[in-house]
Amino acid sequence: MKGISTSCSIRDGMVCKDGQTVFENKNTRLPEFLLSVYEYFGMNYPRFYKMDNLSKLGWLAAEVLLKDSFSADTYQPEEIGIILANSNSSLDTDLKYYESVKDIPSPSLFVYTLPNIMIAEIGIRNNFKGESAFFVLEGFDADFMWRYVEGLMNDNILKACICGWVDLLKEEYEAVLFLVEKDREEPFLPFTLGSVNKIMAFG
């Protein structure tokens, strides 16, 4: 049956997996916090250091989400998608890029001035090639996200999909991701609007 296989949230200095706190490091500044998550989970992916903060946040949440919870080889790369949203688009890096323009415009910062680059970072890491989309909304719209992904599954466009909210501006950040699979025995939660709301509230 269609279900939510797992969830992960990163907010307020805490990383939660399926609603349980798995790492905590409060009262640190954001870049140090993101690095501490990377190190705590023993990740080894040199590209991480090149990413902007938004991509780091989304990428880390996706790593924790998928770890021990997903067998990508069950699917074709085109059957796995990523649908994300936030409210500040890439403004955090836009500000940094425009600072660089006053000196020498930085191509490595410019590429991160698009929010869908975070989707590309997760896709490159996992070889996910299916439908992806990035929506910018005033706040997380659980009903919209649920209906949209439900439609993609029902129309056989995707069989697995990382969904959620990854927003960041300066020191304020919030990532909440969940994995929906079309045919999952004993899912963590049924894929309902209620489940999506619950994950957004409690991770």
């Binding site: 590429v111 896709g123 490159i124 070889n127 996910f128 992806s132 466009i157």
Partner: peptide, 10 residues
């Protein structure tokens, strides 16, 4: 339809 290369950022 929409797809992703999963290859390179730029």
């Amino acid at each position: 339809s929409i797809s992703n290369d999963a290859n390179h950022l730029s």
